[in-house]
Design a protein around this nucleic acid. Structure first.
Length: 408
DNA sequence: TCTTCCACGTT
DNA sequence: CAACGTGGAAG
């Protein structure tokens, strides 16, 4: 029997386990972090744990270490010092299908995330649900403009420890609580075309975190004083290869610098200060901004046959075995972003500029208090890795199984 | 040491 | 002005 989540009927709240493929894990898959130092030791340890920790901590299978190399990264680095193309840590990308390899995901405000990460990011969780700060926003390129995709996030345990904050530092204080069933947050625009996702930053700022294990709102449930890793999944949503098929194409992107420890109130005062400082920066900044991006102009149309998108019922509680439903999105403001691709045919990555007026939605920081603007060209190109993992459990199958236990 | 509650600011 | 979101006080 399908299991309808009566209290939280949206697809986005269907409970899931972390994405963990059935295949063998490859502990060596995580490359050592050459920037390993005191400030990021915690994070590196976290990823080592993930690599060694077995499926219960369930990041998707890691790609082979050599896949982290990008032929373009040095070029980009030379041209734009503030783009950390050589970062060894992000994103970890896994694809299960051809057609997803071209997809690149760039963490927005990566510098900010890195600042928090260096201190030790904390995310407040409350009974009612709290937004993340920094909020999770990405730029996605390489999507087929006409194909529909679902973008969704989950947050999986970062390691097997429980932490405490004492003497002004974090330390391990025991074994982690058993992981809660993971919940998915499906971006409210889903499903939408590649063109739509590519048009502007994709913001997950409405995602909320809670410590209420019985949360009825569909927020992502986390344990306080535990470490977590957000992940982004991009799922192709066309009929011929859609939800319902075991071959559902998807890819998973993990930005190590977005890992955090969940807390019910900030522990490290440096985090409080950094957040406050950041908000003031945002408040003081201007309305109009120009942001530079680097793109790989390598997008290739592989087929001229555009599959019709899967129809998603909107506005009602779905039965998991008859279709998936997503939160009906607010109206998206008209495209206000203008891109000018300077040299689209060159094989070198090209910088281009985006001048945009802030969307209304973007004028609030995560606490909805202060005007928001990113302080500078902060959209970072992260290192891309694309591999094929035929044995990786399809996201659809995984979602369906977790959403409707017993119906598959 | 950590969580919950609540007064306050913003939308 | 109601609803929402927050930081810090209180426990």
């Amino acid at each position: 029997m399908p299991h309808t989540h009566a209290a939280c009927g949206w697809f986005k709240v269907c409970e899931t386990e972390p994405l963990s493929a059935g295949g063998p894990r490859t502990p060596s898959a995580l490359p050592p972090d050459p920037n390993l130092n005191e400030t990021i030791r915690c994070r590196a340890a976290s990823f080592q744990d993930m690599a060694n920790g077995g499926d219960q901590f369930g990041l998707a299978e890691r790609p082979d270490s050599n896949c982290m190399e990008s032929p373009h990264e040095d070029t980009g680095k030379q041209e734009h010092d503030n783009y950390s193309l050589n970062s060894p840590s992000s994103p970890q990308t896994t694809t299960n299908q051809q057609g997803m390899e071209e997809i690149k995901v760039f963490l927005h405000d990566r510098d900010l995330w890195t600042k928090f990460d260096e201190v030790g990011t904390e995310m407040i969780i409350t009974k009612a649900g709290r937004r993340m700060f920094p909020s999770y926003k990405v730029k996605v390129t390489g999507l087929n403009p006409k194909t529909k995709y679902i973008l969704l996030m989950d947050i999986v345990p970062g390691d097997d420890h429980r932490y405490k904050f004492a003497d002004n530092k974090w330390s391990v204080t025991g074994k982690a609580e058993p992981a809660m069933p993971g919940r998915l947050y499906v971006h409210p625009d889903s499903p939408a075309t590649g063109a739509h996702w590519s048009r502007q930053l994709v913001s997950f700022q409405k995602l909320k975190l809670t410590n209420n294990h019985l949360d009825p709102f569909g927020h992502i449930i986390l344990n306080s004083m535990h470490k977590y890793q957000p992940r982004l999944h991009i799922v192709k949503a066309d009929e011929n290869n859609g939800f319902g098929s075991k071959n559902t194409a998807f890819c998973t992107h993990v930005f190590a610098e977005t890992a955090f420890i969940a807390v019910t109130s900030y522990q490290n005062h440096k985090i409080t200060q950094l957040k406050s400082k950041t908000i003031h920066l945002l408040k003081d900044s201007e309305v109009e901004t120009t942001t530079s991006y680097i793109v790989w102009p390598s997008y290739k149309v592989k087929t001229t046959l555009w599959f019709p998108a899967v129809q998603f019922a909107r506005g009602h509680v779905p039965h998991c075995d008859t279709g998936l439903s997503v939160h009906s999105p607010e109206m998206i403001s008209p495209a206000s972003t203008h891109y000018s691709l300077l040299h689209p045919h060159l094989q070198q990555p090209q910088a281009y500029h985006c001048t945009k007026r802030k969307r209304v939605e973007d004028r609030c920081s995560s606490d909805n208090r202060l005007p928001y603007k990113k302080p500078s060209g902060t959209l970072q190109v992260a290192q891309i890795c694309t591999v094929t993992h035929p044995r990786t459990l399809s996201l659809h199958t995984w979602v369906a199984q977790q959403c409707c236990p017993g119906s598959h």
